[in-house]
């Protein structure tokens, strides 16, 4: 059983209605083998419902979800042993210790040894607290144990729903680094999140969803590529602004911190540099200003809302 054309997850016109509420609307996405895919959207946008349909927890109203080339709803026993999932709220037994929780879930999979349990506990740095009850863990520890649980059977596809929810900045950083490490190991990651900064650092490709509909999807570097703004840092900014402001081919000149932002295409950088040099002003730094994913996300969702 192999994924068709290297596509691990594929949804086709996936739709879910809860009564008269449309949670997911005609959603079509593809997640390729070995990539870290970010699934972005505000709270209540349909991310978790989509994840539920991919994992067979929620039945679609129409459309389909395929995992490893198999229709998800009817092939779960073949699909799930190859999938690990981390839910938004870590769902483990509060009265069992961390290790006992992993033992319980290990028994539900085939051929998971005690050694493997030790390995995943080490991986999430929970070995020293493995004997403590799950209910006594901090939120970050619970989340780490849930990740360990998802990794027990060494899955090819890891689906994570807001894995850094409720974590402090240090905890978020740890989880982020772990996801990057898993991605480097060749695992396919499907990351549900509303934290754009987190996704930007971890994922190569993203889809943005709003009110159940895909707004845009593509490579992160394409989505945040250089716009028509040049960013320069010079020794005499006021004088430089006066010079540049008089040029018709520069649409705008603004100051932002130590930088001057010019409304001009990036390929005009040499011309800008030469112009300033004539008056003895030298650029310490000159580069195209990049968008952040956050800015892009807000632009997209606002455009959609305005439309």
């Amino acid at each position: 059983m192999s994924a068709s054309n290297g596509i691990i997850v594929k949804t086709k016109n996936l739709t879910k209605h809860f009564g008269h509420i449309v949670a997911v609307d005609d959603l079509s996405i593809e997640v390729h083998k070995g990539e870290a895919f970010g699934f972005l959207g505000p709270n209540g946008s349909g991310k978790s419902t989509t994840m539920g349909m991919i994992l067979g927890l929620i039945a679609p109203t129409s459309g389909s979800a395929e995992v490893f080339g198999l229709e998800a709803q009817h092939n779960l026993p073949s699909i799930l042993p190859r999938v690990g999932a981390v839910m938004e709220t870590p769902g483990l037994y509060p009265y069992l210790s961390g290790r006992d929780n992993l033992k319980v879930f290990a028994r539900l999979s085939d051929h998971i040894s005690d050694k493997r349990i030790d390995e995943v506990l080490d991986l999430v740095e929970m070995s020293s607290r493995a004997k403590d009850k799950f209910s006594n863990y901090s939120m970050g520890m619970k989340q780490r144990l849930a990740i360990a649980c998802a990794l027990l059977h060494n899955p090819e596809l890891i689906i994570m729903d807001e894995p850094t929810n409720g974590l402090d900045p240090a905890g978020m950083k740890e989880i982020r680094e772990l996801i990057i490490e898993l991605s480097k190991q060749g695992k396919t990651i499907f990351l549900n999140s509303h934290l754009l900064h987190e996704v930007e650092q971890v994922c190569e490709r993203v889809a943005i969803i709003k009110k159940g509909k895909i707004v845009v999807q593509g490579l992160v570097k394409e989505l945040v590529k250089a716009g028509d703004v040049l960013q320069i840092k010079v020794n005499e900014p006021d004088k430089a602004m006066a010079i540049l402001g008089g040029q018709k081919w520069i649409s705008s000149v603004n100051k932002e911190g130590d930088y001057i932002l010019l409304g001009v295409k990036a390929d005009k950088a040499v011309d800008v540099s030469a112009l300033l040099a004539k008056d003895g002003i030298f650029a310490a730094e000159i580069k195209a200003k990049e968008n952040s994913l956050e800015k892009f996300f807000l632009e997209q969702t606002e455009e959609e809302a305005n439309a």
Binding site: G56, L57, P77, L80, G91, L108
Partner: peptide, 13 residues
């Protein structure tokens, strides 16, 4: 506890 999801995503049946 949310454990029902955790069990079912391990054993789909």
């Amino acid at each position: 506890w949310g454990t029902i999801r955790q069990v079912l995503i391990r054993r789909g049946n």
